[in-house]
Design a protein around this nucleic acid. Structure first.
Lengths: 176, 176
DNA sequence: GTAGTGTTACTCGGATAAATATTGTCCGAGTGACATCGG
DNA sequence: CCGATGTCACTCGGACAATATTTATCCGAGTAACACTAC
């Protein structure tokens, strides 16, 4: 029941990337600096987001990362699943079958009730995460946060974002 | 986002202990055998349940474990929190403050919106777990499962449960 | 036959190692920008 | 002065250690049952 530390970093990066306009990008090193993280380690998580089709990566100088689709269509669930893996947290090991009492396999056709209850709870968890879009996160930040914090974030984005020359569909986009 | 393996074992043990009547107990070794687990390792998880006041332990020969309160008052959430720890899975490291841009602490009085969204999802998760009582798990098992499986479980309980002599309030109960 | 007592075997409990997953770091492949050279 | 070209620096990407957490095991403290002895 412990979420990896990289989830927080990934969400913050996605929120920051939501602030860059058009087809501009921001390098992973810049984001690592913004959050005081190891650049090489942050890259590892950003790669997971890229592999899941949430981010696009542009190689070369003036390259970097960019949202692969509008922030309205990216949810916290997408990011959590990309970083932590898609399989549920509770996986039923069917230990009820592992005892010394050997019953026929036909006795276990009904799914384990415990597993069902746990998965139901996890569905509720994921449904709540699916409600939270990155655009909402950014909007709430713009409305509620301290003006100095907003100004600092916008200035950082403005300072580090890099315009791309042309066609945003030419790069590696991993749209599965 | 990975739940420990011991959670499943702990829930199964609690469900099995719900089948012993009165103040009888069942030894940890018996339950470990029932599920094909390492006895010494299962004890570790059962101790967590005992420390949380979910189980009672009776030492000595013919000792064992027993539910500390009726199965109607034990939820899956109680067990998950006891085994996995009470703190939430997502803990905000406040990485937004860790960048090189030093803002005054007063700029961060508002809680992080990301943290709020994640905790909201986790509240939904816990609420769903709090709905599932051990008594419901057992009842569903009795209704839906294969009769052979029910018979085997009941036989196992009948064979391994151990009557206690007297006062159930005399033992170590860890009621905090 | 009954009560007291010492021993014994069985229980839980915590301290101790092995295995696994996570976290963190490094180096290499690739690519666009820049400077240089030629026309 | 303009274009082509070679070099370079910066990017991401994946492979390689270090650490932390989880998993598994062992040994010790405690307790009730059992057997034995004395009355």
């Amino acid at each position: 029941m412990k979420l990896g530390d990289g989830v927080e970093a990934a969400i913050h990066c996605a929120a920051m990337l939501a602030g860059v306009e058009g087809n501009s990008t921001m390098s992973g090193a810049a984001m690592a600096e913004a959050f005081g993280l190891s650049p090489s380690y942050l890259l590892k998580h950003l790669n997971l987001l890229t592999a899941s089709g949430i981010l696009e990566s542009v190689p070369g100088p003036s390259g970097g990362y960019r949202l692969a689709r509008p922030a309205e269509r990216i949810t916290l669930l997408d990011i959590v699943l990309a970083v932590e893996g898609r399989e549920p947290a509770f996986r039923c090991g069917e230990i009820r079958q592992r005892g010394p009492v050997k019953l026929d396999a036909s006795a276990y056709v009904k799914p384990c009730g415990i597993n069902a209850a746990m998965l139901k709870a996890e569905r509720a968890y994921r449904a709540a995460l699916a409600e939270a879009k990155i655009s909402d996160i950014v909007a709430d930040f713009m409305n509620d946060a301290d003006p100095r914090s907003i100004a600092a974030s916008c200035a950082f984005v403005e300072r580090h974002q890099r315009r791309q020359k042309a066609q945003p569909s030419h790069v590696q986009s991993n749209k599965e």
